[in-house]
């Protein structure tokens, strides 16, 4: 059963009409090729119309779409000989942030990302992609491992935020995020991040202080969720749509603010309509970004990475 977002209702109606016609033609032998063709053209046009002018709030919904490809999908399609690595060596293993070694485009890398899960069982196991301190400490540990062996780091960002829980606070959620950011700013290897879905606040930036930050066309990246922002500044969560617009959280906004380096196009109708093509496109962008960085000297990379983030928000 495909999941449709509210604003996709006209698309849903058209698709069910096409499906119905196809079923009829199979059972009755009626030739309706022409009619189906006409409807499919109409569907494409409708998708173009809808998806070329998504509002920031609609993009937020697309970014959270349950069928959107998640980190595990990217690893399965892009990484060969993947060896998952677990644990922070201090307290536990966090399934909300998965990581390991693998080969990407002919080279060994450390790859990591938030994993939201794709059905009830896996969502619970991955804590809906909301990492605890152990997740960030594991990320930092594996960044250091990458640095030690000269392996590039790829991080995939897809979280509504770090987990707000009692245990997470007791074990130093803030310290773990701060330390992960610090580690991002210490490793002397090429480092590329891709915001593939939701880039939620501190939980996102903890693994995204990279040489190149890429972002999918309909992904969002922000300091707080639109709902959270609305409830604080507008005193009502129902103002999320207005908050989303004010926050400048879309990929094109963030390129304008020089926070994101490159936008990766999504297939017509969003990543959830064609996960394989989306992942392949991200793979091509990642390969380009990494080979560009590999030409540079390690010390130079780190200097440039620090300068880039030190300059964010500077006047002129």
């Amino acid at each position: 059963m495909q999941h449709y977002l509210d604003f996709e209702r006209p698309v849903a109606e058209l698709e069910s009409k096409i499906k119905e016609l196809r079923r009829l033609s199979e059972s009755d032998g009626v030739n309706i090729v022409e009619e189906v063709g006409r409807l499919e053209t109409k569907l494409d046009r409708l998708l173009v119309q809808t998806y070329t002018k998504l509002t920031p709030w609609q993009k937020t919904q697309v970014a959270r779409h349950p069928e959107r490809p998640h980190t595990s999908r990217y690893i399965a399609q892009l990484i060969e000989d993947f060896v998952p690595l677990a644990g922070d060596r201090l307290y536990g293993e966090d399934h909300a942030l998965i990581a390991g070694l693998g080969a990407f485009d002919g080279r060994s890398v450390v790859v990591m990302g938030h994993e939201k899960g794709s059905d009830t069982e896996s969502r619970v196991r991955h804590n809906f992609g909301m990492a605890r301190p152990e997740g960030y400490r594991k990320a930092a540990r594996l960044m250091r491992l990458a640095g030690r062996f000269g392996l590039p780091v790829i991080s995939l960002v897809d979280t509504s935020g770090a987990y707000p829980g009692v245990g997470a606070e007791e074990r130093g959620q803030a310290e773990a995020i701060a330390r992960s950011i610090e580690t991002c700013l210490q490793i002397q290897v090429p480092f590329v991040s891709v915001v593939i879905g939701e880039g939620g606040s501190g939980g996102a930036i903890a693994i995204a202080v990279a040489d190149r930050v890429l972002m999918l066309e309909h992904a969002v990246y922000s300091v707080i969720s639109p709902e959270g922002c609305a409830s604080i500044l507008w005193r009502g969560g129902d103002q999320a749509e207005a908050a989303a617009a004010a926050m400048k959280l879309t990929a094109s906004d963030l390129v304008g603010l020089e926070v994101v380096d490159e936008v990766v196009k999504e297939p017509l109708g969003g990543a959830h309509r064609d996960p394989a093509a989306t992942v392949a496109e991200v793979g091509r962008a990642l390969a380009r970004a990494l080979s560009g960085l590999e030409e540079r000297k390690p010390g130079e990379l780190l200097r440039a990475r620090r300068d880039k983030f030190m300059g964010m928000g500077r006047l002129g």
Binding site: I177, L185, G202, I205, V223
Partner: peptide, 23 residues
């Protein structure tokens, strides 16, 4: 925490201040 009115640029200050402390 972060100043919401400056959106993502506030979030980026986390990386920025961390870089300054690291140096």
């Amino acid at each position: 925490g972060a100043r919401m009115q400056e959106g993502i640029l506030s979030l980026m200050q986390m990386a920025r201040t961390t870089a300054a402390i690291a140096e």
